[in-house]
Amino acid sequence: MSDDRVLKGIGLRLLAIFFLSTMSALVKLAETRGASLPETMFWRQACALPVVLTFVAAGPGLRSLRTTRLKGHLARSLVGVVGMVFTFGAVLLLPLAEATTFQFTVPIFATILGALVLGERTGVQRWGAVLVGFAGVLVVAQPGGGEHVPLFGAIVGLLAALFVALVAILLRQLRDEPSGTTVFWFSTLTLPLIAVPYAFHLQSHDWLTWANLAAIGVVGGCGQLALTGAAKLAPVTTVVPMDYSGLIWATIYGWLLFGVLPSAMTWAGAPIIIASGLFIVWREQRLGKQQTVTAAPED
């Protein structure tokens, strides 16, 4: 693999994390303007569809959207939409930096699921990294003593990471499908599901709030496409460390938009979680195993 392709892959991954971090900030901003969670989720998917269709039409063509794996896409979509509830819920319940930090536990959950669901052999070193990672979570969450991170919000944040890891496992079954096809079916199949609760939350907004909701979908769709592009250009172990740049963006957005900075315990615990995740990814590569960690939170 050429150095040029790897550098492009790293650049795309950094761009994807910027897009997804921006989307999280917009989700939180939409709530301050009166938008509900069902509204935010609906417009996230609806406004991402034109972005995905444009990408597919300019690339492999709309015929590539045909699939014989509809059951696989449906399973991925059902798990994905539940994961979106938790991911957006964490953003609404927690400061941005803390919500982002809990997303860094995805490699930890991927290791656990790989062992329990797929029967993968997991050695002492990776189980040790899992324990270290959860120690970092305890530092950030401060169960029983932290006011900056509410316990319910921490649980929702961890569930969001768990479902991202579940989606990564389900995507293994769809790895032969074009990336645009997978993203298209995720948006298309989840829209009817989200439309039901959205119907009970219909309300009027000013134009700025509508623009905010539309931007969530457009930016989120761009983030998904950038993630898939990065995966095609560079090895997962090369691009995954770029995900931790999300903490920088979350800190900047949290300060500029909401006047909130990460707590001292978040700065103490985040490096522990990050080190655990990096070790797990590195160990997977060393063992030559197929990666279970393929993307940042899909939202």
Rank of each mutant, 00 (worst) to 15 (best):
L162M: 15
A75I: 15
S77M: 06
V167Q: 13
R76P: 00
G180Y: 04
V164E: 03
V117G: 01
T68M: 01
F88S: 02
G119A: 12
A57W: 14
L20Y: 08
M23E: 14
T237I: 07
T228M: 14
F258T: 13
V132K: 05
F279Y: 13
L278T: 09
G133H: 03
V106W: 01
M1D: 11
L213M: 06
I216E: 00
A97M: 06
G180C: 13
P192M: 07
G9E: 03
I155S: 02
A154F: 03
G145P: 09
P50T: 13
A75E: 10
V140G: 01
D3W: 12
I194A: 02
T40W: 02
A230L: 07
I274E: 15
P150V: 05
G259H: 10
R172E: 15
R172Q: 15
Q173R: 13
I108A: 04
G259N: 10
Y253N: 03
S21V: 04
V51H: 00
V130H: 00
R126V: 12
Q45T: 10
V219Q: 00
R283A: 12
L193T: 05
V56T: 13
I17C: 07
A48C: 05
G288F: 15
V91W: 05
R44M: 15
P297K: 03
T87S: 09
P262G: 11
L261D: 06
V219K: 00
P60C: 07
L170V: 02
I274V: 14
V137Q: 01
V293M: 07
R121G: 08
W249V: 06
F200D: 05
V81P: 00
M265S: 11
S204N: 12
E147P: 06
A231I: 14
H201W: 10
E120F: 06
A115Y: 11
A161H: 01
V164P: 00
F19L: 08
A75G: 15
F152D: 06
F200A: 15
M242H: 05
V183A: 10
L256I: 12
Q224W: 02
I273A: 03
G217E: 04
V260E: 07
G9I: 04
T251D: 09
A129V: 08
G277S: 14
P143I: 08
W207D: 04
V139T: 11
F42T: 09
A250S: 14
R44K: 08
L191F: 07
A110M: 09
A129I: 10
L65C: 07
V85G: 05
A129S: 13
A165C: 08
V137L: 09
L202P: 11
P60A: 08
A296S: 13
I10K: 06
R13K: 03
V27L: 05
E120N: 10
V236E: 04
F18G: 05
F186C: 01
G119Q: 12
L166Q: 06
G80D: 00
L225Y: 02
A264S: 09
G119R: 14
A135T: 15
P178E: 08
I155N: 04
L131M: 14
A30H: 04
W185G: 00
W210I: 06
L20Q: 04
A110R: 00
E284M: 04
L170I: 01
L15Y: 11
V167T: 14
G114I: 00
Y198A: 12
R172Y: 07
G246T: 06
L166C: 12
V164M: 05
P271T: 01
